[in-house]
Design a binder for these strands. Structure first.
Length: 214
DNA sequence: GGCCAGGTGTAAA
DNA sequence: TTTACACATGGC
């Protein structure tokens, strides 16, 4: 089964997702950290709090007291560590000179990964959705869905899976953007609990007949 | 009340 | 090199 065929089916079913849901690249970056192992609804509330407090700003976050920042982002969960992570990221962001500076780095991915609290998924989300760089984002949904489809091993590492996608797909920011968003849309709205939904857009592609998530 | 959510870092096996 | 656990809120 071709990865592009799967993409087409998901796109036909769910339509364009218009990711990342944010008003600026900087907001995308904060959201990428805040959404770590957290429901997006909870992240929206946190970002809304930051906006209301006029704190959606790298210098203000970098200078903000940790406890105060934690209160603003409380709804996103893990707020103590996320407050530290946001501050550390913002210091880095300022040192680079903002998005443009970040993008101009020799290896922006390595630079992001060097920060405490930014792992491969968060780094890649920032690269793809904030900086428009063509890297394919892998998450828990991607792992599960494609393992169930029999296209990858259940214990494939992040980079193995990423290489698999990037080797088979044209290196296109627009495609990578939409594909990952569609995987999340599919995982959220489909086949979560029931063994197999009769109207699953990937029906017939799944040799195991197992649910695509969970 | 239990499970899960657009992960990451650390420590033990 | 793998596996277990902490981190925490809110929706269903």
């Amino acid at each position: 089964m071709n990865l592009l065929t799967i993409y087409e089916r998901l796109l036909a079913r769910y339509g364009r997702q218009y990711w990342w849901p944010a008003e600026s690249p900087f907001e995308v970056m904060l959201g990428a950290i805040l959404t770590q192992n957290t429901n997006w609804k909870n992240v929206e509330a946190a970002i809304s709090n930051l906006k209301a407090a006029h704190m959606l700003d790298a210098e203000k976050i970098a200078a903000c007291e940790e406890a105060k920042l934690g209160e603003l982002i409380r709804s996103s969960g893990f707020f103590n560590q996320k407050a530290v992570r946001l501050k550390s990221f913002c210091r880095f962001y300022l040192d680079c000179g903002g998005e443009a500076g970040l993008k101009r780095l020799d290896d922006p991915r390595q630079a992001l990964l060097a920060l405490h609290g930014i792992g491969p998924e968060t780094a890649d989300s920032i690269l793809l959705y904030a900086l428009d760089l063509p890297v394919f984002v892998i998450d828990a949904y991607t792992k599960r869905i494609f393992a169930r489809l029999g296209l990858s091993s259940a214990k494939a590492t992040y980079h193995q899976l990423q290489d698999y996608f990037e080797a088979q797909l044209p290196r296109d920011v627009r495609l990578f953007n939409e594909y990952h968003a569609l995987i999340v849309a599919h995982a959220k709205r489909h086949c979560r609990v029931k063994p197999l939904c009769s109207d699953c857009p990937l029906l017939g592609l799944c040799p195991t007949g197992q649910p695509h998530t969970k």
